[in-house]
């Protein structure tokens, strides 16, 4: 049986909004197995991004617990949380968030530098990853010289170059046209299979359903559906 990578137990997350308290998540429980390729869907304000932030260690739950394997995230210090993100999480953003002053190669290299690796030791891995997302020809280009689809490929390469156990993608296809969305989802599916990395995608995009093997639906901060899917054949 596949081991559980992420276990979420009765998580509640509230935010103060003026004098009111907004409940973004209301008792969410979830288990994510190794190699999962899943999406979290739901309308705006349903708590998708909040859930991703909690899994990614960018925020802490108001109540409940999140475990990475057996480690409880809320027990980690700020330094340990940084190390958790650095070593275990790859982020993919809707608006790519590439560093504009660096080239494609340098953007992909960046997470490895944060891990303390020397460029000379990881150059081959970075070049391979850039080539794997189909951008070998663009390695020395800056983000402003790339199309949206290419930028998202760079973002995927950057997230996966350190081979993290978990990749979190927040609306990864929202800024892309249909063809680019399909290509990006296919690429993520392939990388999920190759690297056994957990992919958790938050999305509005219904086309994503055709690619994932599990779809969790959030409504008003609660899980309303948790469906196993066929995924991409």
């Amino acid at each position: 049986m596949d081991e559980t990578v992420i276990r979420i137990e009765n998580v509640v997350k509230t935010y103060p909004v003026g004098i009111e308290v907004f409940k973004a998540l209301r008792g969410v429980s979830l288990e994510v197995k190794k190699g999962a390729f899943m999406s979290i869907v739901g309308p705006s304000g349903s708590g998708k991004t909040t859930l991703l932030n909690l899994i990614g260690g960018l925020d802490t739950p108001t109540e409940g617990s999140i475990f990475f394997y057996d480690k409880k995230l809320s027990h980690m210090t700020r330094k340990e949380m940084s190390a958790y993100r650095r070593d275990n999480i790859g982020f993919i953003f809707q608006s790519y968030n590439l560093l504009p002053v660096y080239t494609v190669y340098e953007n992909v290299l960046f997470p490895l530098l944060v891990m303390g690796k020397r460029e000379g030791d990881v150059r081959k891995s970075v070049e391979d990853m850039v080539a794997r997302v189909g951008l070998a020809e663009c390695a020395n280009k800056r983000p402003n010289q790339l199309s949206g689809g290419q930028c998202q490929r760079v973002a995927i390469a950057r997230a996966l170059v350190k081979r993290p156990p978990i990749a979190l993608a927040d609306e990864p296809t929202a800024n892309l046209d249909a063809e680019n969305s399909r290509q990006i989802l296919e690429l993520m599916t392939e990388l999920n299979r190759e690297m056994k990395t957990v992919f958790i995608l938050s999305t509005h995009d219904e086309r994503v359903s055709k690619f994932v093997t599990r779809e969790v639906k959030l409504e008003d901060g609660m899980i309303s559906q948790d469906n196993l899917m066929d995924g991409l054949k």
Binding site: G56, R85, R86, F91
Partner: peptide, 10 residues
């Protein structure tokens, strides 16, 4: 923000 997300400490 990106660098923090990627695990660089404050």
């Amino acid at each position: 923000g990106l660098r923090l997300a990627m695990g660089e400490s404050h």
